[in-house]
Simulated scan of single mutants.
Amino acid sequence: MKIYLLIICFFYGLQGFCQASASASVNTRVSVIDPIKINKTLDLNFGNVISSYNPGSLILTPDGTRTANGVQISSSMPGDVSPAEAIVVHGNNSYSINLPDSFILYNQDNPNQILIINQFVVEPTAGTTAGTDILKIGATLNLEANQLSGFYTNTGGFNVTVSYN
């Protein structure tokens, strides 16, 4: 019986020496990267288009090719034609590109007359410097039947947003 009493006293005595807390050292690190940058180098220019008695569209691809649907384009008087272009500086990081669903152009002489641009298409290609890309942007220009002639623009421009993933 003494042995049992001795064992019980021994275990109760150890309870006073039990560990009540513990700690560990945690190292901290951070890698600061440069912010993503975008700079426009060319505006989106559809060139000259000839209105029709029916609605139509003009597709401008990122490589600068124009395709007319229900409207006409003149090869002898194309006007200024260029897809939009921007340079993105992103380092070795991946990113996403956001474009608007649509954009409105206003007739310079009659602001009640509008054209709608939609179906934006973007093609990024590697730039000449590591960590840069060149974005070429095309879209579809939609014309109403008997669209009023004139110069259509929107000086506010549309936003091309790039964000790190």
Rank of each mutant, 00 (worst) to 15 (best):
D80K: 15
L60C: 13
T140R: 13
K37W: 10
L115N: 14
S76K: 12
V160R: 04
N45Y: 00
A22T: 09
Y53T: 00
K2S: 13
D101F: 00
P111Y: 02
V122S: 12
I50Q: 11
M77Y: 15
S94Q: 13
Q19G: 08
N107K: 08
P78N: 10
S102A: 14
A20L: 05
S51E: 01
I87F: 07
N165E: 03
R66F: 09
D43P: 01
P78D: 04
T125H: 05
S74G: 01
S82P: 04
V122E: 10
A145R: 11
S51P: 09
N92F: 12
D43F: 02
S149F: 02
G16L: 08
F10Y: 09
T41Q: 10
L60E: 02
N146R: 14
A145G: 02
I97C: 02
N142V: 15
Y53C: 02
L44H: 04
A139V: 12
N142F: 09
N54S: 04
L6Y: 08
G156W: 03
S75D: 13
E123Q: 00
L143S: 03
S102L: 04
R66C: 03
L99G: 03
A126E: 13
N107M: 07
V32S: 07
L135I: 02
I87W: 11
I137T: 07
G138K: 12
N92A: 04
G131L: 03
I137C: 03
G156Y: 12
